[in-house]
């Protein structure tokens, strides 16, 4: 039992060490040549535009259900007109970034791990190195840049669509006037909330893609290994999204609200 625990701890420490090593190589690759601009553009498209549908749907339904639930709760206090405040504060500060993060973790994190994992087990990454290409620069950096830049954009879109979803339900089902809803939305938000909603996704996007890349390039064991890597990437990046969200929120509260 103790021996198994020691082995587990060693493996965990090794993973962290390799992850940090990869991050240091990424940092170096960002400031030294060569750059693979075409791959960066391709990844912006694959990660950003490719995730738009899922993020739009998630944002829309989240806003709708939030308005529905909070509307009936606020009714008990005769405060149905405050729905907008609740929807905007929840979505902009928390649900927009986290749900976008989770959606991207499911779609992009798994995709990256599966793609790099299959390249690893079929020797394509070894072939890249043999052809004189650094896989970190060619495969990892474009994905990291795309995740870092596009997840905040996706979050803005998800939050915007979420508030529109909340508006649709508020106006059609809760019978609150449109102007009352939008007025409450604006009143419910402080500038710090908006900053929080904008800053957090940068951390979440970075975390999701770096975990996906790390798991992908450490894949071993054929097709079974690729399956395992994909599952690990989704689980690890989803948990990381929640954990990083908490840590960054804590930090931003200290920095901005006190």
């Amino acid at each position: 039992m103790a021996a198994r625990f020691v082995t587990w701890v060693k493996a965990a420490v090794l993973e962290v060490q390799e992850y940090v090593l990869m991050l240091s190589k990424v940092a170096r690759g960002l400031v030294t040549r060569p750059f693979y601009v075409r791959d960066v553009i391709e990844q912006f498209d694959a990660i950003g535009i490719g995730s738009l549908t899922v993020v739009l749907l998630a944002g829309m339904f989240t806003g709708m259900v939030l308005a529905l639930q909070s509307g009936f709760t606020l009714d008990q206090f005769g405060a149905r007109s405050m729905v907008g405040r609740l929807v905007s504060a929840s979505i902009v500060k928390e649900l927009g970034p986290v749900l976008t993060g989770l959606m991207v973790a499911g779609r992009v994190g798994s995709g990256i791990a599966a793609e790099l994992g299959s390249m690893m087990v079929t020797d394509q990454i070894a072939a890249l190195r043999a052809l004189g290409t650094d896989p970190i620069r060619k495969l990892v950096i474009p994905r990291v840049l795309a995740g870092f830049v596009m997840v905040p954009f996706l979050t803005i879109i998800a939050s915007g669509v979420g508030m529109i979803g909340g508006w649709i339900v508020t106006v059609t089902l809760l019978r609150v006037a449109s102007s009352v809803y939008w007025n409450a939305v604006v009143q419910g938000l402080y500038i710090q909330d908006v900053w929080m909603g904008l800053i957090k996704p940068f951390f979440l996007g970075f975390t999701i893609v770096t975990i996906g890349c790390h798991v992908g390039i450490r894949t071993r064991g054929g097709t079974q290994g690729v399956g395992r890597a994909t599952t690990n990437a989704v689980v690890a990046s989803s948990v990381a999204v929640i954990a990083v969200d908490y840590l960054v929120t804590q930090l931003l509260i200290v920095l901005m609200y006190r």
Binding site: S118, T122, D123, Q124, A126, A127, R129, A130, L131, G132, D134
Partner: peptide
């Protein structure tokens, strides 16, 4: 090593072509 690899070519098992 990148400079050394410029003068090397390797044919991998199964080819390892980029899909």
């Amino acid at each position: 090593l990148m400079a050394v690899r410029a003068d090397l070519g390797m044919v991998f098992q199964e080819g390892a072509l980029f899909d």
